[in-house]
Design a binder for these strands. Structure first.
Length: 352
DNA sequence: ATATAGTTTGCTCGTGTTAC
DNA sequence: GTAACACGAGCAAACTATAT
């Protein structure tokens, strides 16, 4: 039997080379959750790009294939790629996907149109005025056939129409994913998450202790101590630290660029004051109090309860009298800054 | 589930402002 | 000038998020 090679690289994910149609590998691969890609012309493990190799899945698949008489070699390169490279690839693939889905949606729409045309034709072929089928007449058979045909054509057209709408929906959704991935608020949250992840790995690397509980009688604390990671585990942790630090740096760069481009405004406690109004999740709110990491807000429309908005979640700020509040070098500036910002603030007013 | 770190809130206190 | 009041800084308590 032929020799199969399972390879894992972060750029391409996990693939298997050397299979051919009907050689018996298909069933085994399917049961081990591999998928066939017409695009790649190969079987692959879903969600394996830029991830660590799924060793368990790879090994069990290999074992099953060997059991079936294949010779299998495994080649794993588990080194991470720089975040910038990963992102570039991801965006490019997404663009290609959008293009393909767009083309598909167009094809489906055209097919739907054709189907409706066929339905019209079939309907028009029916005898005038909803004439009943004359039983026993020489036209009975033909009449029955054409009624059935029209009914059939209608069904096909409706199905086709639904498929077209679904395809269009998928294409539109795909077109928005990259945008959403780089939306300022999302990026800000991702930075928070990565920073937390990094702290976690650093703790594992350096060791830590935690109090399980405090004896209320003696006041003594039961402490669980975690030693710093050693050996292979430590190596792995160091690798993860490097990866997360790289990702964090990448996204911080993205955020810095967004700030430079004016896509986000760095609101802070130095900018917002009590009495201001902020635009947050679709509506304006009164600022009740300014805190270090957020503002305490109250809904303008008859709100008695208060809510909070982190500075990164604030979309716009205006002063109590409605003048736009800008940020210049991290400081508060009320009103129009110059001629170019005048237009902007007018737009804001009309939106308000 | 629990401890702890991090944040916000309610409140006090001191200072400045206003009314008389 | 003094009392009353408003306001913000600062602090402890309350609350929330995070980590395991």
């Amino acid at each position: 039997m032929s020799t199969l090679t399972i390879t894992h690289t972060h750029a391409d994910g996990t693939l298997i080379d050397g299979t051919s149609r009907d050689d018996g590998s298909r069933e085994i691969l399917k049961t081990h959750r591999w998928r066939w890609s017409r695009n790649l012309g190969s079987w692959y493990i879903p969600q394996s790009r830029d991830r660590r190799a799924k060793t368990y899945q790879i090994n069990t698949t290999a074992a099953a294939l060997r059991e079936a008489g294949f010779e299998v070699t495994i080649d794993v390169d588990d080194s991470y790629r720089p975040a910038a490279e990963v992102e570039t690839d991801k965006v490019a693939r997404q663009e290609a996907r959008v293009e393909a889905l767009d083309a598909k949606a167009d094809r489906k729409a055209a097919a739907a149109e054709t189907a409706w045309g066929a339905e019209r034709a079939a309907y028009n072929a029916l005898p005038e005025g909803g004439e009943p089928i004359k039983v026993g007449h020489h036209s009975e058979n033909r009449h029955r056939k054409s009624v059935e045909k029209a009914w059939d054509a209608l069904g096909k057209a409706v199905t086709s129409e639904r498929e077209a709408a679904a395809a269009r929906g998928r294409a539109d959704a795909a077109a928005r994913t990259t945008e959403a991935r780089y939306a300022p608020v999302t990026v800000a949250r991702r930075i928070e998450k990565l920073a937390a992840e990094l702290r976690g790995y650093e703790r594992t690397r350096d060791g830590y202790s935690r109090t399980l509980f405090t004896n209320s009688q003696t006041g003594l604390k039961e402490i669980e101590k975690h030693e710093p990671a050693t050996g292979a585990h430590r190596e792995r942790v160091l690798e993860e630290i490097e990866r997360v630090a790289d990702e964090l740096a990448y996204w911080e760069g993205v955020r810095a660029q967004q700030l430079a481009d004016g896509k986000v405004t760095p609101y802070s406690k130095n900018v917002v004051i009590k009495g201001d109004q902020i635009f947050y999740v679709g509506s304006w709110h009164h600022v009740v109090r300014v805190n270090a990491k957020s503002v305490t807000i109250r809904s303008i429309v008859g709100g008695s309860w208060t809510d909070r908005a982190a500075y990164t979640e604030i979309k716009k700020v205006r002063s109590a009298d409605g003048a736009p509040v800008h940020v210049v070098d991290g400081a508060r500036v009320v009103g129009d800054i110059d001629a170019t910002s005048t237009k902007l603030s007018q737009e804001e007013d009309s939106n308000a």
